[in-house]
Amino acid sequence: MGRPRVVGIVNITADSFSDGGRYLAADDAVAHARRLWAQGADLVELGPASSHPDAEQVGGAEELRRLAPVLERLVAEGVPVAVDSYLPETQRFAAAHGAACLNDIQGFPDPARYAELAASDCTLVVMHSVQRVGPATRVATDAEAVWWGIERFFAERLAALTAAGIGRERLVIDPGLGYFLGAAPGPSLTALARVRRLKERFGVPVLVSPSRKSFLRAVTGRPPAEAGPATLAAELYAALRGVDYLRTHDVGALRDALAVFAALEDAGRGAPAGPEEV
């Protein structure tokens, strides 16, 4: 198992599906980001708007009102920050104010912005979704059809971005999970199981975020507040498949699980073979 980088989620929103309203105030968001950083996050991601099917959509002015005081304080403290938004004005503000990474659930669809993106230094997380435009919706999808759509999407979008002068070393791909792939769990389970195929085909880092997502809740029947064990199982599975980034709500639990897994692997390599292993 490789050592994936851990991205801690801070939802600066009123209606995120798992913790909406808890970190809407700037002081609360900064305090939570500091906790995630102290727990071992490699990157703290700020989300100024929710993208689940039932979320209220907000405009750029509101995103910036929520984001600006949190981003500026964290950057001043030396915390590496990602910003999760598909709005151009939010992305521009984030890049100009020290964000290390931009995460776009639409996968940076506008070629008119590619020169601007090429001129920045931000890492770009190119996410796939079956919706292509806007937030997640509840749609019926077929797992195999979604998988081939994922491959086609990244083949086309990575080619377009690199042709515009954006280096592959700045690109990370995210197949999308949960409602971004459909209402049923099958497409998300398939995408997570085939993470290694994405790495082998496209040769860029892969990020996944199963944390508390709908497909896990469908499998277990648990609400978001009780989805911790299912989340951790999916995250460890992804780590074993070689994923490069894990985006999570619970940095401490994931860090502990990865540390124990690494210790067990080290012990296994040094142990003599038993009769059942010969």
Rank of each mutant, 00 (worst) to 15 (best):
S85M: 01
Y86G: 05
L87C: 09
P88Q: 08
E89R: 11
T90I: 04
Q91W: 04
F93R: 06
H97V: 04
H97W: 08
A99N: 02
A99C: 06
C101Y: 09
D104Q: 07
I105D: 06
I105A: 05
Q106R: 11
G107H: 02
G107Q: 04
F108N: 02
D110N: 12
P111D: 12
A112D: 15
A112G: 12
R113H: 14
A115W: 14
A115M: 13
E116Q: 13
E116R: 13
D121K: 11
C122L: 14
T123W: 11
L124I: 00
L124T: 00
L124H: 01
V126S: 03
M127Q: 15
H128K: 10
S129K: 01
P135M: 03
A136P: 06
A136G: 09
T137H: 08
T137L: 15
D142V: 05
D142N: 13
A143Q: 07
E144P: 12
A145T: 10
A145Y: 14
A145Q: 13
W147C: 03
W147H: 10
W148S: 11
G149I: 00
I150D: 05
I150N: 06
E151Y: 08
F153Q: 03
F154M: 05
E156F: 12
L158A: 05
L158P: 08
A160C: 09
A160N: 13
A160K: 09
A160P: 09
A160F: 07
L161A: 05
A163R: 15
G165C: 11
I166K: 06
G167L: 12
I173A: 05
P175A: 01
G176H: 02
L177F: 11
G178W: 00
G178Q: 01
G178P: 06
Y179Q: 08
A183R: 15
A184P: 14
A184M: 14
G186R: 15
P187Y: 09
P187T: 11
L189H: 11
A191Y: 02
A191L: 03
A193C: 08
V195N: 04
V195Y: 03
K199P: 12
R201G: 09
R201Y: 09
G203T: 05
G203I: 01
V204P: 11
V204R: 10
V204S: 08
P205D: 07
P205W: 00
P205R: 01
V206E: 01
V206G: 00
L207V: 02
V208F: 02
S209W: 06
P210T: 02
S211L: 00
S211Y: 00
K213S: 05
F215P: 07
R217S: 07
A218P: 15
A218I: 14
T220R: 10
G221Y: 00
P223K: 05
P223G: 05
P224G: 04
